[in-house]
Amino acid sequence: MTWNSSIPLQAPNQLLLPPIAENHEPLVSLKQYSPQIEVYPVYYHEGLLGAMKDCLLRLGVAQRLKEASLLLPAGFRLVILDGYRPISVQQALYDRQKERLLSQGWIENDDMYAELHRFVARPSSDPAKPSRHLTGGAVDLTIAGPDGWLQMGAAFDDFSDLACTRYFEEISPILPEEQKFRDHRRLLYHVMAQVGFTNYSDEWWHFDYGNQAWAVITGNEAACYGGILF
């Protein structure tokens, strides 16, 4: 596998979500799960109300993250920023981003909500349509090397076009620094895709496994992870 090959285009998502055939895998802590995996619960460090001091994910997701970490070059590791997200935390993120948009001059209308929902899912306890992170099958992450976190050309939760996974694939001519950002994104994308994850194309840091978004992209007839409510 060549980690520096281009990130492929993603087919448009279908409108109908597949059903969920819950497999009841447990949530597991990523702390001390693997020496190749670092945990930095970003929303906890930001002081977001209700955010956990740990990152939890379904067992199958954790296992695949370990596999992905072993594909990285020597001296590199995955950094997990967020995993399972309770509804209360999803609501806090949703409200925070809505306030940001309003403060930027957006008017509360369909266009504003389309922009909001592009980056932050509406909190949902609907068993037929849970938000991705509520399933424990969505993970936000980056890569760290010997000199620290790799530069990706847009910070985590930079809700702009710069965050689109293929952003640096589509600009020409490309500057040397931009080429570095592109190559770092390629490395993350390909090690994750190699072990079965799919990427949310508007966010270079977001990957799915086992939830409905993953099932849509992979063509599976059903998701295996539904929402987890405490």
Rank of each mutant, 00 (worst) to 15 (best):
residue 143 I to M: 09
residue 186 R to F: 06
residue 176 P to T: 12
residue 195 V to R: 03
residue 210 G to P: 05
residue 176 P to N: 12
residue 146 P to G: 04
residue 139 V to N: 13
residue 122 R to S: 14
residue 128 A to L: 13
residue 211 N to D: 15
residue 154 A to F: 07
residue 164 C to M: 08
residue 196 G to M: 02
residue 141 L to A: 00
residue 155 A to E: 15
residue 150 L to V: 04
residue 193 A to R: 12
residue 190 H to Q: 08
residue 181 F to Q: 02
residue 194 Q to S: 13
residue 205 W to R: 07
residue 191 V to E: 05
residue 157 D to H: 03
residue 204 W to M: 03
residue 143 I to V: 12
residue 165 T to C: 15
residue 183 D to V: 00
residue 133 H to P: 02
residue 158 D to L: 10
residue 154 A to N: 12
residue 145 G to Y: 12
residue 192 M to C: 15
residue 152 M to L: 09
residue 195 V to F: 03
residue 201 S to L: 07
residue 170 E to S: 09
residue 133 H to C: 10
residue 176 P to R: 13
residue 159 F to A: 05
residue 162 L to W: 10
residue 152 M to E: 08
residue 129 K to C: 10
residue 174 I to V: 13
residue 132 R to M: 11
residue 133 H to Q: 09
residue 171 I to W: 07
residue 201 S to G: 01
residue 133 H to K: 11
residue 206 H to V: 15
residue 125 S to G: 06
residue 196 G to C: 09
residue 156 F to Y: 14
residue 204 W to V: 02
residue 140 D to M: 06
residue 178 E to Q: 15
residue 192 M to I: 10
residue 200 Y to M: 10
residue 169 E to N: 03
residue 159 F to P: 04
residue 131 S to G: 12
residue 156 F to H: 13
residue 192 M to Q: 04
residue 144 A to T: 09
residue 175 L to I: 05
residue 167 Y to T: 10
residue 140 D to Q: 06
residue 210 G to L: 01
residue 123 P to L: 14
residue 181 F to V: 11
residue 142 T to A: 13
residue 206 H to D: 03
residue 123 P to D: 08
residue 132 R to C: 13
residue 156 F to G: 01
residue 176 P to H: 14
residue 176 P to I: 12
residue 210 G to F: 02
residue 143 I to T: 09
residue 203 E to Y: 00
residue 138 A to W: 02
residue 123 P to T: 12
residue 132 R to W: 12
residue 159 F to I: 04
residue 208 D to L: 08
residue 201 S to T: 05
residue 165 T to D: 13
residue 173 P to Q: 08
residue 175 L to P: 00
residue 147 D to K: 12
residue 175 L to S: 14
residue 203 E to T: 06
residue 174 I to N: 02
residue 143 I to Q: 06
residue 143 I to D: 10
residue 154 A to M: 06
residue 157 D to S: 09
residue 159 F to Y: 09
residue 151 Q to A: 14
residue 193 A to N: 09
residue 209 Y to K: 04
residue 145 G to H: 08
residue 146 P to D: 04
residue 144 A to D: 09
residue 200 Y to N: 00
residue 155 A to S: 14
residue 152 M to K: 00
residue 144 A to L: 06
residue 197 F to V: 11
residue 155 A to R: 08
residue 150 L to W: 04
residue 188 L to D: 10
residue 201 S to P: 13
residue 160 S to C: 10
residue 138 A to P: 04
residue 159 F to W: 02
residue 193 A to V: 01
residue 188 L to N: 08
residue 146 P to K: 01
residue 126 D to S: 15
